[in-house]
C-alpha cells in the first residue's frame, strides 16, 4: 500500500465515502481527483496550481462495474465512479460505449482515467456525457446533505454541489440501435470538435440523444428525440421521408456552439445537423435490412 488515509494536509486519500465527504468539507480548496490524467496534466501546463489533492482511488465502493440484466426485462448496470475507462470498455455494456471509449484518448490514459472524472466537471468536449444522455443514464452522488440520484439530463444541467462527489452511474437496460459519431482533427487520440450519440430502443419505443462539443456542457437533443419518437411507425419500424433531415435540423437547433481555435460555431452546428441526419439514415437502412 502506498498510502493510508492522509499523507499530509495536502494529499488526502480517504478510504470510505464518509471520510471523503468530511475531507471535502475540511479541505474545500483541494482538487478532487479520479485518475488524475486531466488534473496532473493541467498542473504541468500551468493551468492549475492546486494547493491540495483529494484522491478518490482508495474508496472500494466507488470501484467496479456490476452488469445489469437483458434489455426490457433486466435491471440497470451500475458503474462505480472510480471505474477506469479501460474497465468500462472491458465490461462491454453497450455497442455505443465500445466505439466511444475506443475513440477516447489512448490505452495509457484509459488505464488511469475514470468515469467520474470524465463527467464531473461537465466539460463539453468530454466523450462520456453525450453517450450517457443517449443511454438515458442516471448519476448517483454523495455530499454533506446526503446522497441523491439524478437523471444525466439534470446532472449535465446542474452539476455537483459544494463538497459533493459522484458515486456511480446507472445505465438502464436498453436495446436496439446505439451509435456514437464525432468530427475531430484526426482519427487518432484527441478531443472531438463535435459529437452526437443516439439510441433508438424499439422495445421501449424511445429515442435519446446527446450532443458533445456544442454548448457549455453536453446537451440532450430532447426536441429532436421527441419529434422522432412521434414520427417513427414503431409497428413497422420505419421513419417517414424527411424525418432524418428534420432530426438533424432539430439537433443543431438545440446547440449553442462556441467559436474557438478548433472550429467556428457555424461549422459545429452544420456538423451536428449532418451527423444527426446520417445516424437516422443509418438506422433506417438497418431497419430495411431487417
Amino acid at each position: 500500500m502506498t498510502v493510508t488515509s492522509a499523507m499530509s494536509g495536502r494529499v488526502v486519500r480517504p478510504t470510505s465515502l464518509e471520510e471523503a465527504i468530511t475531507a471535502c468539507t475540511q479541505r474545500p480548496d483541494a482538487r478532487i481527483m479520479g485518475g488524475g490524467t486531466l488534473v496532473v496534466a493541467e498542473r504541468a501546463l500551468g493551468i492549475s496550481t492546486t494547493p491540495a489533492y483529494l484522491l478518490l482511488s482508495g474508496i472500494p465502493e466507488l470501484h467496479g462495474v456490476t452488469p445489469g440484466g437483458a434489455a426490457a426485462t433486466g435491471g440497470p448496470s451500475r458503474i462505480g465512479a472510480q471505474t477506469t475507462l479501460r474497465a468500462l470498455l472491458d465490461a462491454a455494456l453497450s455497442p455505443m460505449l465500445d466505439v466511444a471509449l475506443r475513440s477516447l484518448a489512448t490505452p495509457q490514459i484509459r488505464n488511469r482515467a475514470t468515469v467520474g472524472g470524465n463527467i464531473a466537471e461537465r466539460r463539453p468536449a468530454h466523450t462520456l456525457a453525450p453517450c450517457l444522455l443517449a443511454l438515458d443514464a442516471s448519476v448517483g452522488s454523495a455530499g454533506p446533505d446526503g446522497t441523491r440520484r439524478r437523471s444525466i439530463r439534470d446532472f449535465v444541467a446542474e452539476g455537483l454541489g459544494e463538497g459533493e462527489i459522484i458515486v456511480d452511474v446507472a445505465l438502464p437496460a436498453r436495446g436496439g440501435f446505439q451509435r456514437f459519431v464525432r468530427v475531430a482533427p484526426r482519427n487518432g487520440p484527441g478531443y472531438a470538435i463535435a459529437s452526437v450519440a443516439v439510441s433508438i430502443d424499439p422495445t421501449g419505443r424511445s429515442v435519446h440523444s446527446g450532443i458533445g462539443g456544442s454548448g457549455s456542457t453536453a446537451l440532450p437533443g430532447t426536441a429532436a428525440d421527441d419529434f422522432l419518437a412521434e414520427a417513427i411507425d414503431w409497428a413497422s419500424g420505419a421513419a417517414p421521408a424527411g424525418a432524418a433531415e428534420e432530426y438533424g435540423r432539430l439537433l443543431a437547433a438545440a446547440c449553442d456552439p462556441p467559436t474557438d481555435d478548433r472550429a467556428s460555431a457555424g461549422y459545429r452546428r452544420h456538423a451536428i445537423a449532418v451527423m444527426g441526419r446520417r445516424l437516422i439514415e443509418a438506422w433506417n437502412e438497418e431497419q430495411q435490412r431487417g
Partner: peptide, 14 residues
C-alpha cells in the same frame, strides 16, 4: 498495464 507516468501523481500510485 501501460500508463503515462508523467500524469500519474506519485502519491496516487498503488
Amino acid at each position: 498495464r501501460p500508463i503515462n507516468s508523467c500524469i500519474a501523481l506519485a502519491a496516487d500510485v498503488d
